[in-house]
């Protein structure tokens, strides 16, 4: 989202507006009344962000359990425990796999899909709605429905269809570690590809048709037109789309939790699930807080470096 805010063109008359604003705030009384408008957001900022962030950081250095009042300072002990606990490191690796996997696959599907949906053909609006549909309902409910579809039993829909057409035995979609990871990523892509295609579509529609006409007259074929007109003009959309995919992928919780509940074993457990299970479920506040701190740092580092890389690519392509 911050990518979107940053890439937004500034209003051309920024400077004069600012000057007029300063003049309008003459008089202490009026200035005070104006400042009052910032009180609600300041309250939200302090109560819902500053204080809890401080608490998370402080608790991550203690053995606070929430039940007893005697809190001992343990330094980096919690961090050490996390990095040597297989269930935690499994959560870390699956969350990364999900974020990177959905980002790459969704982008690879959404861009050609957007180009196709931008052509004129019979039933275009129907196709657009169908592709967009998975983005509307709650991902948690869709995860549950997919649980029935991918049920590893012979009665699971996909398994019964595969058995009926190809004669395959029941495939353990959600009970085999590798297949379960793959299933969660693919359902995630199913849920996001149409939404991101519509995002790209919005940018595609702003490309003037004359660009393509001129290129065609100059003898450019379809691939060349895509590579040298469409793709460069889509890079701002790619920056936003991939930033959203990456950050939302890292923060994922609903889908793996409802589809596989983190299983089999810890194969599809996410960091968020570990934080909730440890902190809220078992009252290990210190441990959960340390995990939250590590998670926040990882999200910040990854989103920032991704932003830098895509900015560089944007500059090179366009």
């Amino acid at each position: 989202m911050s990518a979107a805010t940053l890439s937004r063109p500034r209003p051309p008359s920024g400077a004069p507006v600012a000057r007029r604003r300063r003049d309008s705030s003459g008089g202490w009384r009026e200035a005070g009344a104006h400042q009052l408008f910032l009180v609600p957001v300041a309250a939200v900022f302090v109560v819902l962000f500053v204080i809890p962030l401080g608490q998370t950081f402080y608790w991550s250095l203690t053995d606070f359990t929430g039940y007893s009042d005697d809190v001992t300072f343990v330094g980096l002990e919690n961090y050490r425990t996390i990095l040597s606990d297989p269930s935690m490191t499994a959560g870390l690796s699956f969350t990364l796999l999900f974020a990177v996997g959905t980002t790459l696959l969704t982008t690879a599907i959404a861009i050609p899909l957007a180009v196709a949906l931008n052509q004129r053909f019979l039933g275009r609006n129907l196709a657009r709605s169908l592709f967009f549909f998975p983005a509307i309902p709650s991902m948690a409910v869709l995860g549950l429905v997919w649980g029935y579809i991918l049920s590893p039993l012979g009665s699971g829909v996909l398994n019964s269809v595969l058995d009926g057409t190809l004669g395959l035995g029941p495939v353990p979609w959600l009970s085999d570690a590798t297949l379960a990871k793959l299933s969660v990523v693919l359902v995630g892509v199913w849920g996001g590809a149409g939404w991101h295609a519509v995002l790209y579509l919005a940018y595609l529609q702003s490309i003037p048709a004359s660009y393509y006409e001129v290129a065609t007259i100059d003898g450019a074929d379809a691939w060349q037109r895509f590579r040298h007109i469409t793709l460069p003009l889509l890079t701002p959309a790619m920056v936003i789309s991939q930033f959203l995919l990456m950050t939302n992928g890292l923060k994922v919780f609903d889908l793996p939790y409802t589809l596989t509940n983190g299983g089999p074993g810890f194969a599809t457990q996410t960091i968020t699930q570990s934080i909730i299970v440890n902190g809220v479920g078992q009252g290990r506040y210190g441990m959960a807080s340390a995990l939250a701190v590590l998670f926040t740092l990882a999200v910040a580092a990854l989103s920032f470096s991704q932003l830098l890389v895509s900015r560089r690519i944007e500059r090179r392509v366009s």
Binding site: M1, S2, T5, L38, V41, A42, F45, L48, F49, V50, I51, P52, L53, Q55, T56, W59, G66, T247, L250, K251, I271, T272, I275, I276, G279, V280, Y285, A288, S289, A292, V293, F295, T296, V299, A300, S303
Partner: peptide, 22 residues
């Protein structure tokens, strides 16, 4: 303050969830 709000916006909900629950 506006810049600080931008930073708060980037903070994932997971980072504040445990203290807020408390």
């Amino acid at each position: 303050f506006g810049v600080l709000l931008l930073l708060a916006f980037v903070v994932p909900g997971q980072a504040t969830l445990i203290p807020l629950y408390r």
